[in-house]
């Protein structure tokens, strides 16, 4: 890999913010180091945030505050997560392998990069890796690619499972920006590719994710995380569905559905969810909801199957959430 300068940040370093602005942030390293070996990421400076004080999970009246440096494994197995946010527990454990979850951090999970085959191969054109070089995936292999919110320059997906659950739960992301904490609704953290697929998210250089705030409502009675993939473990989602329901007398009181594996960000439409409030929680209505949620979906050849599959997956997940076994 390209030689780089390594700094381990202390709390004092944070105050100035300069190091963060000029550096690539290293947390668990499970994605970044890999990308550096491939030559996809070529940072001159790494700022290791591993010793910063964001490695706790704190319970409060506002919900659960997940430190950005808590590992995915510790988050998934935290008693409050298991009890109140079983959706998040399930989503995290569906991801990667035990070894990776033991090392990967919550903040890093949010900022992991796409698994697009062409993004990973520096010999191939990729607008995300090399803006302006073109997109080889659109007319190439796109089995793991997006069907929603794509652009002519990029059809990559965000690969996280955890983020799909966080989107469904409507978590908030706490970001340290110029010494102050900025609260970003989860929906606004990631972005669609548009003409700038090199930008995965809306953070600015120097920003540091410090926490993820889970709201008090965890939908622990009616939830499902359904992940469909090409093998039973250690594979990224072809499609995943995080579904949450609140039902009263057979009618939908609240519904949250976020999709993974279909877009550049977890796909969730508040407007469509709102339309469902008060309707009967039935397969027919779930089907209607699925159609609305993926309206405008477009596929690219080897991911054609996703349009049918995602609809069925949404219905399955909502039915499972409705009738927990």
């Amino acid at each position: 890999m390209k030689p780089f300068q390594y700094t381990r940040l202390s709390t004092q370093d944070l105050a100035s913010g300069t190091t963060l602005r000029d550096s690539t942030i290293l947390a668990g390293g499970t994605n970044l180091i890999d990308l550096m070996k491939y030559g996809v990421e070529k940072p001159d400076r790494l700022a290791d945030i591993g010793k910063l004080p964001y490695a706790q999970i704190e319970e409060s009246d506002e919900g659960l505050l997940l430190g950005a440096l808590v590992t995915n494994a510790d988050t998934a197995y935290h008693s409050a997560v298991k009890k109140t946010y079983p959706l998040l527990h399930k989503a995290i454990l569906s991801a990667a392998s035990a070894q990776l979850r033991n090392r990967a951090t919550n903040g890093g999970n949010l900022l992991q990069r796409t698994r697009c085959y062409y993004f990973y191969d520096t010999a191939m054109p990729c607008n995300k890796r090399e803006p302006g070089s073109g997109c080889a995936a659109i007319n190439g292999f796109n089995r793991i690619h997006a069907i929603l919110g794509t652009s002519a320059s990029c059809i990559a997906t965000h690969p996280s499972d955890m983020c799909v659950a966080l989107a469904a739960l409507e978590a908030e992301v706490h970001v340290l920006r110029k010494g102050a904490t900025l609260v970003i609704p989860f929906d606004q953290l990631h972005r669609l590719p548009g003409d700038h697929p090199e930008k995965d998210h809306n953070l600015e250089p120097g920003d540091l994710i410090t926490h993820i705030q889970l709201p008090t409502e965890g939908f622990s009675d009616h939830f499902e995380y359904l992940k469909i993939r090409d093998r039973e473990s250690y594979a990224f989602a072809l499609i995943s569905v995080a579904a949450c329901l609140k039902v009263s007398e057979g009618k939908i009181e609240d519904i949250r559905v976020a999709l993974g594996g279909v877009a550049h960000k977890p796909w969730k439409l508040k407007k469509v969810e709102k339309e469902m409030i008060g309707k009967v929680a039935s397969t027919d209505n779930f089907q209607f909801f699925a159609e609305r949620l993926i309206q405008g979906a477009q596929s690219f050849g080897t991911n054609d199957f996703k349009i049918l599959l995602v609809k069925r997956a949404i219905v399955r997940a909502l039915n499972s959430a409705l009738n927990p076994s």
């Binding site: 085959y117 010999a123 594979a235």
Partner: peptide, 18 residues
């Protein structure tokens, strides 16, 4: 003519869970 899944993440060998 290039192998696009030349890694263990995308070239899927069977894993224990399978």
């Amino acid at each position: 003519g290039r192998v696009m899944n030349a890694n263990f993440a995308e070239y899927h060998i069977a894993v224990n869970a399978d």
